[in-house]
Design a binder for these strands. Structure first.
Lengths: 127, 127
DNA sequence: TAATTAACGCAACAAAGTCGCATTAGCTAT
DNA sequence: ATAGCTAATGCGACTTTGTTGCGTTAATTA
């Protein structure tokens, strides 16, 4: 099952590239002017995650956000141990550069790290 | 709008007390043998969160988990800056004691911390 | 250029959570 | 005790988020 290049895939990718934030499905759908079907967008995003092109963040609003992660892209063993900040006002979800290490109790094996801090970003704080 | 003591509220509270893990809505519903209405459970849990009795964790499965936090209970200014571990096998969600401090960029104001690590817990790892 | 099959669009579905509304039942003050 | 106020409940409908089945379309490759 090799991947194919389709206009939809290219379009989603370019939206993700232009935004330097993590995007939710509905943000993408809006950016794409509703030209691509809901299910298709979800499938494209899931494929991106499988291929390690993007990573998935589940924010405290319960929604999935997708961000392409350049650093992790080339090194296959990606850790993604960084936080994301979600602004409650402008709803932007951005990566925080801080790498965080949490040491688990003995015998625990980590598979996925999901850290989100929500609040007000500096742009919205001044306004 | 003062709170009232009802059997439902007491029941939910006692289930949360007995479990020393965070529980999702459906876990509670099951533990209560379906005696309490879905909506009611949700409302009780939301009230608990408002009152600072429990805190809400949104895990990477997109579901809300509720845990009563004894330490934070008495001190009103609760930070909750600790991680939670969700086992992909037994589905238990437990608090990790490590307090984590993430320093945000200048001008950012944190309102909520939501850190979840999923993987395999020590009980399930041996099995 | 034909064959293969990944990707698409559409529709239906599932799960999680919320909300409106009529009814019930805690609390409080008589 | 008891009457009155209104918080809490149960039911149903609804929204949102995400997935899946299926028939069709189109990207690759030989």
């Amino acid at each position: 099952m090799k991947r194919r290049n389709t206009p939809s895939k290219t379009a989603v990718l370019s939206v993700l590239e232009r935004a330097n934030t993590a995007l939710s499905h509905d943000m993408l759908e809006e950016a794409l002017d509703g030209t691509i079907d809901r299910a298709t967008i979800y499938r494209i995003l899931n494929r991106f995650c499988e291929d390690g092109l993007t990573h998935r963040i589940v924010a405290d609003d319960g929604k999935q956000y997708f961000a392409l992660c350049e650093e992790c892209n080339h090194q296959k063993a990606h850790s993604h141990n960084h936080f994301h900040f979600r602004c409650l006002q402008c709803e932007r979800v951005e990566c925080l550069s801080n790498e965080v290490s949490v040491n688990l109790p003995k015998g625990y094996r980590a598979e996925n790290f999901n850290g989100v801090i929500s609040g007000v970003c500096n742009r919205c704080a001044v306004a």
